[in-house]
Amino acid sequence: MIKAVIFDMDGVIVDSEPIYEKADKEIFQRYGINLSDKELQNYIGVNLLDIWTDLFNKYHFKGEYKDYEVEDFIEEHVHGHYKVLSESDELALMPGIKEWFEYFKAKSYKMIIASSSYEPIIELIYQKFGLAKYMEGYVDGNSVEKGKPEPDIFLQAAENLGVKAEECLVIEDSEHGISAANQAGMKSIGFDRDTDYNQDLSSADILIKEFNQQNLEKLSL
């Protein structure tokens, strides 16, 4: 029996991926890193620690960045994301997601965010859109040892809510996120938008393209 719903944030609650994509390209180019679209897609849903650990091992940074540690790159990246999100006029809730929040709230399901983003970014979104009305907090990507596709972040979210893993439903838009939900032993909804991100969500229990009433009725909660 499902008692709780765990939401990814970026690309599920807010349509932030296009904003991130532009910012990421600028950030990586600043360090002399030119990633292909496929390489960028492989990092969707992955936390910054894992991304920058991977990049740090692949690239030999020189000049002003030669003494940088992974943590230095992460700090600047988080600051870059925070800046573009806080200044963006395009950042908005995903169409229909608020109605889903209202539905789950009316049914007394517990709700929480489990996002690979860092705490300042999640807090910005949390406050901007008044998510405390629905959510019982959040788990950020820096608060668990292993990020998605490992299940740690979802297991921590379930623990925070005081529910069992099998009592949770995860809503995700990334391949890594669905994999993490499966490994956690949770039911999952793959939010398969018409994007160029090419995420394989086929292992999700349910696939949807919109947050609407028709898809809510598919859940049978």
Rank of each mutant, 00 (worst) to 15 (best):
50 D>K: 13
203 S>L: 10
17 E>D: 04
41 Q>E: 15
56 F>N: 10
144 V>L: 12
7 F>L: 02
16 S>G: 08
187 K>G: 02
11 G>M: 08
164 K>N: 12
141 G>L: 09
55 L>Q: 06
116 S>L: 00
188 S>H: 08
80 G>F: 03
4 A>Q: 03
79 H>R: 14
34 N>P: 04
114 A>G: 02
7 F>Q: 00
168 C>T: 09
17 E>A: 05
128 K>P: 00
22 K>P: 04
23 A>P: 00
144 V>H: 10
189 I>H: 06
92 A>D: 10
178 I>R: 04
90 E>Y: 12
7 F>S: 01
185 G>M: 09
120 P>W: 08
191 F>S: 00
139 V>F: 04
113 I>T: 02
57 N>Q: 15
84 V>D: 01
72 D>H: 14
210 E>W: 07
165 A>H: 07
53 T>F: 04
193 R>V: 11
219 L>A: 13
38 K>H: 15
77 H>C: 10
199 Q>L: 11
13 I>S: 06
146 K>Q: 11
169 L>M: 08
39 E>R: 11
124 L>H: 12
135 M>N: 05
164 K>C: 04
150 E>D: 05
134 Y>H: 05
23 A>F: 00
18 P>L: 12
201 L>H: 11
149 P>H: 08
77 H>T: 09
121 I>F: 05
57 N>I: 07
186 M>Q: 10
93 L>P: 02
88 S>G: 06
175 E>K: 15
148 K>D: 14
91 L>I: 09
135 M>H: 05
62 K>F: 09
46 V>T: 14
170 V>G: 06
138 Y>A: 03
19 I>S: 04
62 K>R: 13
181 A>H: 08
209 K>T: 13
91 L>Q: 05
205 D>F: 11
155 L>D: 01
131 L>R: 02
33 I>T: 01
45 G>M: 07
198 N>K: 15
8 D>H: 07
139 V>A: 01
185 G>H: 10
51 I>K: 05
94 M>I: 12
87 E>D: 08
207 L>A: 10
64 E>I: 15
68 Y>V: 03
105 K>L: 01
23 A>K: 07
141 G>E: 02
159 E>G: 15
56 F>I: 01
136 E>C: 03
187 K>I: 08
98 K>S: 03
13 I>A: 04
